[in-house]
């Protein structure tokens, strides 16, 4: 069965957890810019965590479902509705045959991930259903969704069928995951960073400004990276660096001195100095940044970053365990 895209909105595409394993061929990781949010949303509708869902940027998305589906979404502060029912983030909802899901423009943040029971059945390309918008492959014909597209859906899992029966009366589940998992957007976030290998190429004043000053998100930002206006960070040396791997979270400083924070669609290698890296558990906040947002960076240690990530994974394991009660 399928869902019809009545309105595709500003930028909506099929994404899963990304295309790992092909960086050596120049293929970006891609996938949901907040993979944790998609994992959680998938769990809420009885999917495998790695199932493909939809990512919408700035909303304006309207879907009509051809059959009964569970849906859960997470991300920025969006108004989401099905008919007259308001759908808060992180709550699984039962959408019936012929009903619609509308995600309007966000008040805070810019992206949302929508998991649908059964998952989006785009073909696997290089091990992933994600849309690679630069290589034009994966997802729906390698492109963003358009008005009128049909999105093919997989079969509801046994878990999804059980929860569907439970939600026949109330429609929306009252329980939800921890707030930060389903609503990661902040108006003035502090993103935690660890030092990058080129930290010492910048003088004391530059690294102090990085962690003391405010940076403003530039409109010239996309799924590849967030560009910042504000303080310009100048280098000590002018050595031409040899290109090497970069990763989502890398903060590189081009000759302009204005930082660029790389996101999931970033290229695989780069030659700008890497002053720092946003830690993995703060990438969900980074994925919500939009033009004009004010951001600060705060330094933590690599051990802190690992501990936070391991804690989050342990909490996710507990959450997964706790979900059993709703699916059995």
């Amino acid at each position: 069965m399928s869902a019809t895209v009545i309105r595709a909105g500003f930028l909506s595409a099929v994404q899963d957890l990304g295309r790992a394993g092909y960086r050596q061929f120049g293929v970006s990781l891609g996938g949901a810019l907040d993979p944790h949010a998609l994992r959680v949303a998938n769990l809420l509708v009885g999917n495998e965590e790695s199932a493909a869902g939809l990512e919408t940027t700035f909303g304006g998305l309207k879907l009509r479902f051809a059959d009964e589906r569970l849906v859960a979404w997470s991300g920025g502060e969006f108004d989401a509705r099905s008919g007259s029912t308001l759908l808060p983030a992180g709550h699984p909802v039962l959408i019936r045959e012929g009903e619609e899901l509308v995600i309007e423009r966000p008040k805070t943040g810019c992206r949302a991930w929508i998991a649908i029971s059964g998952g989006v059945e785009a073909p696997l390309v290089l091990g992933s259903r994600s849309t690679d918008l630069r290589g034009n492959f994966g997802g729906k014909d390698g492109r963003v969704l358009r008005d009128g597209d049909k999105v093919t859906l997989g079969r509801n899992s046994e878990r999804a069928k059980i929860l569907t029966e439970r939600l026949r009366e109330e429609k929306i589940a009252r329980w939800k995951p921890p707030h930060d998992w389903s609503s990661p957007a902040k108006r003035e976030p502090t993103l935690r960073i660890i030092r990058g290998s080129d930290w010492n190429r910048f003088d004391d004043a530059a690294v102090q400004r990085l962690t003391a000053d405010k940076f403003i998100v530039s409109p010239d930002s996309d799924r590849m990276g967030v560009r910042f206006e504000g303080p310009q960070l100048k280098r000590n040396d002018l050595v031409d660096l040899v290109s090497e791997a970069v990763a989502p979270g890398t903060i590189q400083i081009p000759p302009s001195g204005k930082p660029i924070l790389l996101l999931g669609d970033c290229q695989t290698i780069g030659g700008y100095p890497k002053i720092a890296h946003v830690i993995t558990v703060d990438l969900p906040m980074a994925a919500q940044l939009r033009a004009g947002d004010e951001v600060r960076f705060g330094e933590v240690t690599l051990v802190d970053a690992h501990q936070l990530l391991i804690n989050r994974e342990q909490n996710l394991e507990q959450f997964r365990h706790g979900l059993q009660a709703h699916f059995s």
Binding site: I194, G196, S197, E244, A245, V246, A247, P248, G249, T250, K274, H277, V278, I279, T280, L302, A305, H306, L309
Partner: peptide, 9 residues
């Protein structure tokens, strides 16, 4: 050297 918390060079 670390390349963030989930990669190294």
């Amino acid at each position: 050297a670390p390349l963030g918390d989930s990669a190294l060079i």
